[in-house]
Design a protein around this nucleic acid. Structure first.
Lengths: 246, 246
DNA sequence: CCAGTTTGCGTATATCCTACGCGTTGCGTA
DNA sequence: TACGCAACGCGTAGGATATACGCAAACTGG
């Protein structure tokens, strides 16, 4: 007997948006959706997404595997809840801040931090957001551009630019550092040096020679991220300037 | 008896770079790595990455599941080979083309096409490229910037900017169109309209009202991609102009 | 105290990857 | 020509996975 009689939304969405009915009868629950999701997030943070199975999760919670299905319809649903809960609230700035660049930079850096804390997020499929958590992040980014003369479509396009960049940068960084062995940053550089024949890949060989892949001890990995973000925001700045003149 | 005695590279890499020894003895193979990889790519293209299992692949090839393991060490290895083979060659332009923007645009559009033809690529983990196929693409992108005064580190940064954007855009697009039912483009817009409370998500609500998510019949989905790419390349142009003056 | 409702969980099934080892085949060599 | 070995194809089996189904336990309102 599904309870979405007059509602066409999937059950998971109703729960996410607080539209699920409270049911005060029956046995007192030892488990709760919040506990399950929190444990799943912790497990994925510590041991990776591949280790997250219903059995391991149940073991961690001290319950039987099938008990989880009373609160979660499927493993996909669980991942949806994880995706909604893990990021936490976005940075706060009012509507139409004067400094769009500073606001958007802060937003991107914090999102980057979220991805580094929860690397499994970028391994999940990147579907359009439907939960309040992700929509809050999206809204915050759009608000960062609220004071600019860009039209809504352009604003959204710029935000997606930043989203894709942050996600991609985190994806590369986590896949390089999360190698099983202590593959230092230099390992990839050494591998490329051996494989990239200058005759076949001239531009790549020159890039390697210039030491781009070599670990530069003075700078953290965040510096590369910030540099790329700055170039990206230069492009946003061009569009804003163009819209201002028009 | 592994055959990488004097070589520390994983076996899969030796095969990818044509360093595997030819073994002319024994029985004539009915299976080959090329056939297996081609069938796996076709299967993933047609039915999605979730359906790709060793059993299904063997069924398609008319062999027993375990026969595949004579040519492929594991399923992860198979996916590595798929990733190397599916994209095909990158677009051709000489070293240091005069029109960096046109070249990079063509490169990005073709890569976008690859992702749309093989949506499973963007669902796989985005690890740094180590196979000749992906390195050829990377080299081509770096060559597109060969005529600019950017230093190698900046060139690489710009290329990664484009890579992340193309990948992210394809990820969103494929996850929206590959829905099980015939969820038209308008479905997401309708869902957002119901969920995005203007009081809670003011900027998002305004974006929806402006019809950003509504399907505009005149333009294909490529147009959004091209628009975002243009903004991105504006940022690259700023960096190039800055480097020219310096 | 009882009926109804909700939770927790045991069982069973289907599917998956893959370690191990056996029989078969065909080339290179004697 | 005949033999031996290397490589191939595959059958079996084991462990792990998600999850449908149904029953017993526990709690609450009457």
């Amino acid at each position: 007997m599904p309870d979405d009689i007059g509602d066409e939304l999937p059950h998971a969405l109703n729960v996410l948006w607080g539209r699920a009915k409270p049911k005060g009868r029956g046995r007192t629950p030892a488990l709760s959706l919040e506990r399950i999701v929190a444990a799943a997030v912790a497990l994925a943070d510590e041991e990776g997404l591949a280790v997250l199975s219903m059995a391991r999760l149940a073991e961690r919670l001290g319950c039987a595997p099938m008990s989880l299905y009373r609160h979660v319809a499927s493993k996909d649903d669980l991942q949806l809840f994880m995706l909604a809960a893990a990021p936490g609230p976005p940075p706060e700035f009012g509507t139409a801040p004067a400094d769009w660049r500073g606001s958007l930079t802060r937003w991107a850096v914090e999102l980057f931090g979220v991805y580094l804390r929860h690397p499994w997020i970028v391994q999940l499929v990147n579907s359009p957001p439907v939960d309040p958590g992700q929509l809050a992040w999206l809204d915050a980014a759009l608000r960062a551009l609220g004071g600019t003369p860009l039209d809504p479509r352009a604003r959204f396009s710029m935000v997606m630019l930043v989203v894709h960049y942050v996600r991609g940068a985190a994806q590369i960084l986590t896949s390089m550092t999360a190698e099983p062995e202590e593959r230092a940053d230099g390992a990839y550089a050494a591998l490329l040096t051996e494989l990239a024949d200058p005759g076949r890949f001239p531009a790549l060989a020159r890039t390697i020679e210039a030491g781009v892949f070599a670990p530069n001890p003075g700078a953290g990995p965040d510096d590369d991220f910030r540099a790329g973000l700055d170039h990206l925001l230069d492009g946003v700045g061009v569009a804003i300037e163009r819209a201002t003149r028009a």
